[in-house]
Structures are given as structure tokens and as C-alpha cells.
């Protein structure tokens, strides 16, 4: 039992931190620009594919540094030449633009790398057993993912809370007009934040690629969960995104570990019309629990756990 709890916690935190790397950028962009970027997970996928492409030519580590930068540049370009032009047309066109962009990126990825998963491997330098606990081993690569994600989180906090750039970004989150009045180039800042968000998503892709299968459907698999995270956390709230990521990571992992069903609690005989529902275990419900949480949060607290505004 202890073993199950220990490893579920590790796995849950890891998954949560990975979600956070994506959610942080998405939620920052949303709060600054009011745009829910549907293509955000596509940057995650691009990161994985760029990482793979560089890995097979130069090795993992060059990819680890270069791929996020490349994705960040693409993100900045998308903002500069796409979203900025659409900005005056209102949020609907921006939303549709990112929605379409997600499909375009997926198609391009399929054209270049094919529909099959690519063989993106864990680097040999990290391919060993990190530790052994209760007879279960934990791979070093997963520890590396965890450490990277925590480091990124720490760096984000420092940049946003302790630097001048961070102050300006925070100000622009709530009062963009005022920040512009004070002489800051707000559109340029939008571009930087969008690019940085894309780079973070790209980095998440680079490190998740070898562990979670690099394939064209990877964006579509993660996308819905990501929206749950930022809505539950509260749109625009970085702290909210952090806690919601961990919460959802842990809930999903622990739900898989549980076997309880209504039948176990209330006895094997199901009331009429509840036959199948009676037997379903929590583990089988695991994939939909985050969405259930989304619905409940929207009903009970539409601003999310730590959000301040409702839209």
C-alpha cells in the first residue's frame, strides 16, 4: 500500500508539473491578451518533434536547449504576424485563428514526420535506474523531467515576482492600457510572452517526447486536460494553474490506483436503471474525473480556484 502511495505521488506530481509547464504559458497569454490559444499544445508537440529531429542528428542535449528556442521563435512569429493583425478584429477571429493553426501544425507534422510515432529515445546518459524503493525502480529520466519542471517553475516565479520585466508583465495582465501609457511597448511584450509561453510548451515537449511517445496525436491527447487545468485554476492565475496542475495530476494518478465502486459501498444489487454504473470502478472513471471537476468548479466557483475574473 505504502508503495502504491509513494509511486502514485511521484507519478502524479510528475504529470502535474508537466501540465504546469504548458498551463503556465497558456494562462499568461490568456490573461494578457484575452485569447485562449488553442494552438498551445501544438507548440508542445512541435517541441517534441524538434527535439527528436535534433536528437537523431546531434544528440539529446543540443535538442534540449535549441528546440525550445526554435519553438519560442515560431510562437513569437505567430503572435507578430498572425495574432497582432487579427487583434483589432476582436477575440473571435483570434480564437478561430489559433483553432485553425492547431490543425495546420498537426497536418504539417504528419507531412514531415509521418503518422507513426517516431523513435525519440531517452539519452543514454539518463538511461539508468535512479533509485529503488520497496522493490520498484524509478527511472532516472523521470527524475530528470521532474527536476526540469521544478526548475522552470522556480525560474518563472523569480522572473515574475523579482524582476522588472516580471513587474511590467504583471501590470500588463490587469492594466494593459496604463502600462502602455507609461511608455512600455505592450505589443512587443505580448509577443515576448507569447514566445516565452510557446518555448515553455516546447521544452515540455522536448522532455516529455521520449517518455510519453512522440506522435501526431500527442497534442490532441493533452489539449482537453490543459483547458481543464487553466479553468479549474482560474483563468489568468499562475498560482492557480500551478495548484490545478498538481491537483489534476494527482487525482488522475490516484484515481487509477483505486478500485472502489458503488457496488462495493452499497452492496452488489444495483437499483433499477443503474446496472452498469453500479459496477464501474473509480479506476475506470479516472479519465473523466478531471472533466467532472471542471463542471463542478464552473458551477460552484466560476472564477476557478484562484481566478479573479469570470470570462
Amino acid at each position: 500500500m505504502l508503495q502504491l502511495i509513494a509511486f502514485s505521488t511521484l507519478n502524479g506530481v510528475l504529470y502535474g508539473m508537466l501540465l504546469f509547464m504548458l498551463a503556465s504559458g497558456l494562462t499568461l497569454v490568456f490573461s494578457m491578451m484575452g485569447v485562449l490559444n488553442f494552438a498551445h499544445v501544438s507548440f508542445y508537440m512541435l517541441g517534441a518533434y524538434f527535439g527528436f529531429e535534433i536528437e537523431r542528428r546531434l544528440g539529446f542535449w543540443p535538442g534540449f536547449f535549441v528546440a525550445p528556442l526554435a519553438v519560442g521563435l515560431i510562437g513569437a512569429a505567430v503572435e507578430r504576424f498572425g495574432l497582432r493583425r487579427l487583434h483589432r478584429l476582436g477575440h473571435v477571429s483570434e480564437l478561430l485563428f489559433t483553432f485553425g493553426l492547431a490543425f495546420v501544425i498537426e497536418e504539417i507534422v504528419q507531412m514531415i514526420w509521418g503518422k507513426l510515432p517516431v523513435d525519440y529515445r531517452v539519452p543514454p546518459s539518463l538511461d539508468f535506474v535512479a533509485f529503488r524503493l520497496f522493490d520498484t525502480t524509478y527511472p532516472a529520466y523521470r527524475m530528470f523531467m521532474l527536476v526540469t519542471a521544478v526548475a522552470i517553475f522556480a525560474a518563472l516565479v523569480v522572473v515574475l515576482k523579482r524582476t522588472r520585466v516580471g513587474l511590467v508583465i504583471q501590470a500588463a495582465l490587469t492594466h494593459p492600457d496604463m502600462v502602455a501609457m507609461l511608455g512600455h511597448d505592450v505589443p512587443r511584450m505580448f509577443m515576448l510572452v507569447f514566445g516565452a509561453g510557446a518555448a515553455l510548451a516546447g521544452l515540455a515537449g522536448v522532455i516529455a517526447g521520449p517518455a510519453l511517445v512522440t506522435q501526431p496525436s500527442m497534442a490532441a491527447l493533452l489539449g482537453p486536460i490543459l483547458f481543464v487545468v487553466i479553468v479549474v485554476g482560474g483563468l489568468g492565475s499562475l498560482a492557480g494553474a500551478f495548484f490545478a496542475s498538481l491537483l489534476i495530476g494527482l487525482i488522475q494518478t490516484f484515481a487509477v490506483a483505486m478500485n472502489g465502486s458503488l457496488a462495493e459501498v452499497f452492496g452488489p444489487v444495483a437499483p433499477p436503471f443503474l446496472g452498469d454504473l453500479w459496477q464501474v470502478t473509480i479506476a475506470e472513471l479516472a479519465p473523466i474525473i478531471p472533466y467532472l471537476l471542471l463542471v463542478i468548479v464552473l458551477i460552484v466557483r466560476p472564477t476557478g480556484l484562484m481566478g479573479t475574473r469570470e470570462s
Binding site: M1, Q3, L4, F7, N11, Y15, V213, M218, A257
Partner: peptide, 18 residues
Amino acid sequence: HPLLKITDFSPYIAKIKA
């Protein structure tokens, strides 16, 4: 478990192990 949607089976393996 859901069909062809899971990319990380670690939680399931932890359960089998336990």
C-alpha cells in the same frame, strides 16, 4: 483502461506491483 489513449502506464504498473 481507455483504448489507445494512454501514453504513460506507470500508474497501472504501480497498481499491479502493489
